[in-house]
Amino acid sequence: MTPTLRVDKSNLSSRTYEQIRSALMNGEYSPGDRIRIANMAESLGISITPVREAIFRLVSEQALEMTAATSIKVPQLDAATVAEIQLIRRLLEGAAAEKAAGKITKDRLDHLAQTHDRFIEAVSKSASEAARINRDFHFELIAAADMPNLYEIVGGLWVRMGPLLHVFHSHVPARAISNDNHPHYRVLKALRVKDGASAAKAIQEDIAWGERILLEWMSFSSLLSA
Protein backbone atom coordinates (compact mmCIF):
# COMPACT_ATOMS: atom_id res chain seq x y z
CA MET A 1 0.00 0.00 0.00
CA THR A 2 1.42 3.39 -1.00
CA PRO A 3 -0.48 6.42 0.38
CA THR A 4 -0.77 9.45 -1.85
CA LEU A 5 1.90 11.92 -0.73
CA ARG A 6 2.72 15.42 -1.92
CA VAL A 7 6.14 16.96 -1.48
CA ASP A 8 7.36 20.50 -2.10
CA LYS A 9 10.37 20.62 -4.43
CA SER A 10 12.58 22.43 -1.90
CA ASN A 11 14.51 20.40 0.69
CA LEU A 12 13.12 17.20 -0.79
CA SER A 13 14.82 14.71 1.48
CA SER A 14 13.57 16.31 4.71
CA ARG A 15 10.10 16.89 3.35
CA THR A 16 9.84 13.34 2.04
CA TYR A 17 11.00 12.06 5.41
CA GLU A 18 8.31 14.06 7.23
CA GLN A 19 5.59 12.89 4.85
CA ILE A 20 6.47 9.20 5.17
CA ARG A 21 6.94 9.55 8.93
CA SER A 22 3.52 11.17 9.27
CA ALA A 23 1.94 8.44 7.13
CA LEU A 24 3.44 5.80 9.45
CA MET A 25 2.21 7.62 12.55
CA ASN A 26 -1.28 7.93 11.07
CA GLY A 27 -1.47 4.21 10.32
CA GLU A 28 -1.56 4.69 6.56
CA TYR A 29 0.78 1.72 6.28
CA SER A 30 0.18 -1.71 7.78
CA PRO A 31 2.75 -4.01 9.42
CA GLY A 32 4.56 -5.98 6.73
CA ASP A 33 3.83 -3.53 3.91
CA ARG A 34 6.68 -3.33 1.41
CA ILE A 35 7.91 0.08 0.30
CA ARG A 36 9.43 0.31 -3.16
CA ILE A 37 11.68 3.34 -3.46
CA ALA A 38 11.34 3.65 -7.23
CA ASN A 39 7.54 3.43 -7.08
CA MET A 40 7.35 6.03 -4.32
CA ALA A 41 9.66 8.39 -6.19
CA GLU A 42 7.51 8.04 -9.28
CA SER A 43 4.28 8.69 -7.36
CA LEU A 44 5.82 11.81 -5.79
CA GLY A 45 7.23 13.04 -9.07
CA ILE A 46 10.76 13.34 -7.66
CA SER A 47 14.05 11.52 -8.13
CA ILE A 48 14.99 8.37 -6.26
CA THR A 49 17.76 10.03 -4.22
CA PRO A 50 15.64 12.07 -1.73
CA VAL A 51 13.28 9.14 -1.26
CA ARG A 52 16.18 6.81 -0.57
CA GLU A 53 17.67 9.29 1.92
CA ALA A 54 14.34 9.62 3.73
CA ILE A 55 13.81 5.85 3.80
CA PHE A 56 17.31 5.18 5.14
CA ARG A 57 16.78 7.76 7.87
CA LEU A 58 13.58 6.00 8.93
CA VAL A 59 15.38 2.66 8.85
CA SER A 60 18.00 4.07 11.25
CA GLU A 61 15.16 5.10 13.58
CA GLN A 62 13.64 1.57 13.41
CA ALA A 63 10.47 2.96 11.84
CA LEU A 64 11.21 0.87 8.76
CA GLU A 65 13.37 -2.20 8.26
CA MET A 66 15.71 -3.18 5.46
CA THR A 67 15.94 -6.92 4.80
CA ALA A 68 17.99 -6.55 1.60
CA ALA A 69 19.48 -3.78 -0.50
CA THR A 70 16.15 -3.07 -2.20
CA SER A 71 13.69 -4.59 0.28
CA ILE A 72 12.17 -2.05 2.68
CA LYS A 73 9.26 -3.07 4.89
CA VAL A 74 7.10 -1.72 7.68
CA PRO A 75 8.22 -3.71 10.74
CA GLN A 76 6.01 -6.35 12.29
CA LEU A 77 6.58 -5.73 15.98
CA ASP A 78 6.56 -8.63 18.41
CA ALA A 79 4.61 -8.64 21.66
CA ALA A 80 7.64 -7.82 23.82
CA THR A 81 8.47 -4.76 21.73
CA VAL A 82 4.87 -3.54 21.81
CA ALA A 83 4.75 -3.95 25.60
CA GLU A 84 8.01 -2.04 26.01
CA ILE A 85 6.94 0.83 23.75
CA GLN A 86 3.59 1.10 25.47
CA LEU A 87 5.27 1.15 28.89
CA ILE A 88 7.47 4.06 27.81
CA ARG A 89 4.43 5.81 26.36
CA ARG A 90 2.54 5.43 29.64
CA LEU A 91 5.41 6.96 31.59
CA LEU A 92 6.04 9.86 29.22
CA GLU A 93 2.48 10.68 28.19
CA GLY A 94 1.41 10.40 31.82
CA ALA A 95 4.06 12.94 32.79
CA ALA A 96 2.93 15.22 29.97
CA ALA A 97 -0.72 14.99 31.02
CA GLU A 98 0.16 15.86 34.59
CA LYS A 99 2.14 18.89 33.47
CA ALA A 100 -0.57 19.92 30.98
CA ALA A 101 -3.20 20.02 33.72
CA GLY A 102 -1.48 23.01 35.28
CA LYS A 103 -0.74 24.83 32.03
CA ILE A 104 -3.52 24.17 29.53
CA THR A 105 -5.54 27.19 28.45
CA LYS A 106 -9.31 27.22 28.03
CA ASP A 107 -8.97 27.52 24.25
CA ARG A 108 -6.63 24.55 24.09
CA LEU A 109 -8.86 22.51 26.36
CA ASP A 110 -11.92 23.34 24.26
CA HIS A 111 -10.05 22.31 21.11
CA LEU A 112 -8.92 19.06 22.75
CA ALA A 113 -12.54 18.28 23.64
CA GLN A 114 -13.57 18.96 20.05
CA THR A 115 -10.81 16.64 18.82
CA HIS A 116 -12.15 13.89 21.06
CA ASP A 117 -15.67 14.45 19.74
CA ARG A 118 -14.36 14.11 16.17
CA PHE A 119 -12.53 10.95 17.18
CA ILE A 120 -15.69 9.35 18.59
CA GLU A 121 -17.59 10.33 15.45
CA ALA A 122 -14.92 8.80 13.21
CA VAL A 123 -14.77 5.48 15.08
CA SER A 124 -17.88 4.10 13.40
CA LYS A 125 -17.00 5.48 9.96
CA SER A 126 -13.31 5.05 9.21
CA ALA A 127 -10.55 3.17 11.04
CA SER A 128 -7.86 5.26 9.36
CA GLU A 129 -9.58 8.53 10.26
CA ALA A 130 -10.15 7.37 13.84
CA ALA A 131 -6.47 6.43 14.14
CA ARG A 132 -5.36 9.83 12.82
CA ILE A 133 -7.67 11.83 15.09
CA ASN A 134 -6.74 9.71 18.12
CA ARG A 135 -3.13 10.61 17.41
CA ASP A 136 -4.16 14.29 17.23
CA PHE A 137 -5.75 14.02 20.69
CA HIS A 138 -2.63 12.56 22.26
CA PHE A 139 -0.27 15.05 20.68
CA GLU A 140 -2.46 18.06 21.44
CA LEU A 141 -2.37 16.93 25.07
CA ILE A 142 1.42 16.58 24.99
CA ALA A 143 1.78 19.97 23.28
CA ALA A 144 -0.21 21.58 26.09
CA ALA A 145 2.49 20.43 28.53
CA ASP A 146 5.06 22.57 26.66
CA MET A 147 7.72 19.84 26.80
CA PRO A 148 9.26 19.81 23.30
CA ASN A 149 11.87 17.14 24.01
CA LEU A 150 9.28 14.77 25.40
CA TYR A 151 7.07 15.55 22.40
CA GLU A 152 9.83 14.47 20.00
CA ILE A 153 10.60 11.27 21.91
CA VAL A 154 6.96 10.22 21.99
CA GLY A 155 6.70 11.04 18.29
CA GLY A 156 9.37 8.45 17.59
CA LEU A 157 7.40 5.84 19.53
CA TRP A 158 4.22 6.65 17.62
CA VAL A 159 6.02 6.25 14.29
CA ARG A 160 6.76 2.66 15.24
CA MET A 161 3.30 2.00 16.72
CA GLY A 162 1.22 3.80 14.07
CA PRO A 163 0.74 0.81 11.75
CA LEU A 164 -0.42 -1.37 14.65
CA LEU A 165 -2.70 1.34 16.03
CA HIS A 166 -4.48 1.37 12.69
CA VAL A 167 -4.95 -2.39 13.07
CA PHE A 168 -6.33 -1.71 16.55
CA HIS A 169 -9.00 0.63 15.19
CA SER A 170 -9.78 -1.81 12.39
CA HIS A 171 -10.51 -4.71 14.74
CA VAL A 172 -11.97 -3.18 17.89
CA PRO A 173 -15.79 -2.90 17.76
CA ALA A 174 -16.90 0.72 17.59
CA ARG A 175 -19.13 0.23 20.61
CA ALA A 176 -16.05 -0.60 22.70
CA ILE A 177 -14.59 2.83 21.97
CA SER A 178 -17.48 5.21 21.47
CA ASN A 179 -18.99 5.05 24.93
CA ASP A 180 -19.06 7.31 27.95
CA ASN A 181 -16.37 5.24 29.70
CA HIS A 182 -13.62 6.03 27.22
CA PRO A 183 -10.54 7.26 29.14
CA HIS A 184 -10.37 10.44 27.05
CA TYR A 185 -13.43 11.70 28.93
CA ARG A 186 -11.60 11.25 32.24
CA VAL A 187 -8.59 13.06 30.82
CA LEU A 188 -10.75 16.03 29.87
CA LYS A 189 -12.54 16.02 33.23
CA ALA A 190 -9.22 16.06 35.10
CA LEU A 191 -7.82 18.86 32.93
CA ARG A 192 -10.88 21.02 33.59
CA VAL A 193 -10.21 20.95 37.35
CA LYS A 194 -6.41 21.03 36.94
CA ASP A 195 -6.01 17.63 38.57
CA GLY A 196 -2.65 16.51 37.20
CA ALA A 197 -2.54 13.14 38.94
CA SER A 198 -5.95 12.14 37.60
CA ALA A 199 -5.11 13.35 34.08
CA ALA A 200 -1.94 11.24 34.13
CA LYS A 201 -3.80 8.19 35.40
CA ALA A 202 -6.53 8.53 32.75
CA ILE A 203 -4.18 8.78 29.77
CA GLN A 204 -2.14 5.90 31.14
CA GLU A 205 -5.31 3.82 31.43
CA ASP A 206 -6.09 4.69 27.81
CA ILE A 207 -2.68 3.48 26.65
CA ALA A 208 -2.84 0.34 28.83
CA TRP A 209 -6.30 -0.54 27.48
CA GLY A 210 -5.08 -0.22 23.91
CA GLU A 211 -2.07 -2.38 24.74
CA ARG A 212 -4.26 -5.17 26.12
CA ILE A 213 -6.41 -5.20 23.00
CA LEU A 214 -3.35 -5.15 20.73
CA LEU A 215 -1.60 -7.99 22.53
CA GLU A 216 -4.77 -10.10 22.57
CA TRP A 217 -5.19 -9.53 18.84
CA MET A 218 -1.53 -10.33 18.16
CA SER A 219 -1.78 -13.55 20.16
CA PHE A 220 -4.96 -14.59 18.34
CA SER A 221 -3.45 -13.77 14.94
CA SER A 222 -0.35 -15.84 15.68
CA LEU A 223 -2.54 -18.81 16.59
CA LEU A 224 -4.43 -18.49 13.30
CA SER A 225 -1.21 -18.39 11.28
CA ALA A 226 0.45 -21.28 13.14
Rank of each mutant, 00 (worst) to 15 (best):
P3G: 07
R6A: 13
R6I: 14
V7K: 01
D8W: 12
D8K: 13
S13D: 12
S14Y: 10
T16K: 02
Y17P: 02
I20R: 01
G27N: 05
I35V: 11
A38Q: 10
M40H: 04
M40P: 01
L44Q: 05
G45L: 08
I46T: 12
S47G: 12
S47K: 08
I48L: 09
T49H: 09
P50V: 09
V51R: 00
V51W: 00
R52P: 06
R52W: 08
I55A: 03
R57S: 04
R57A: 03
L58I: 06
V59M: 03
V59C: 02
A63H: 04
L64Q: 02
A69G: 15
T70S: 11
T70I: 09
S71N: 14
S71A: 12
I72D: 00
K73Y: 07
K73E: 04
V74Y: 00
V74W: 00
V74P: 00
Q76P: 01
D78R: 02
D78I: 01
Q86W: 03
I88W: 04
E93W: 04
A95K: 10
A100N: 05
A101Q: 03
G102N: 15
K103E: 14
K103D: 07
I104F: 06
T105Y: 08
T105Q: 15
T105I: 09
R108D: 15
D110V: 13
A113I: 07
A113V: 07
A113Y: 06
D117C: 13
A122Y: 03
V123Q: 01
S124V: 11
K125Y: 14
S126A: 12
S126F: 07
A127N: 04
S128Y: 11
R132V: 05
I133G: 00
I142F: 07
A144K: 04
A144Y: 04
D146G: 07
D146T: 14
D146P: 06
P148G: 14
N149F: 13
N149M: 14
Y151Q: 09
E152N: 11
I153Q: 03
W158M: 07
V159N: 03
R160S: 02
M161Q: 05
M161C: 13
M161P: 06
G162A: 09
G162V: 01
G162Q: 00
L164T: 02
H166W: 11
H169Q: 12
V172F: 09
V172Y: 06
V172N: 08
A176R: 13
H182D: 12
H184D: 10
R186L: 09
V187K: 01
K189R: 14
R192N: 14
R192K: 13
D195G: 06
A197G: 11
S198A: 15
Q204R: 14
E205G: 08
D206T: 10
I207V: 15
I207E: 01
R212Q: 15
W217Y: 11
F220E: 15
S221W: 07
L223Y: 13
L224I: 14
A226L: 11
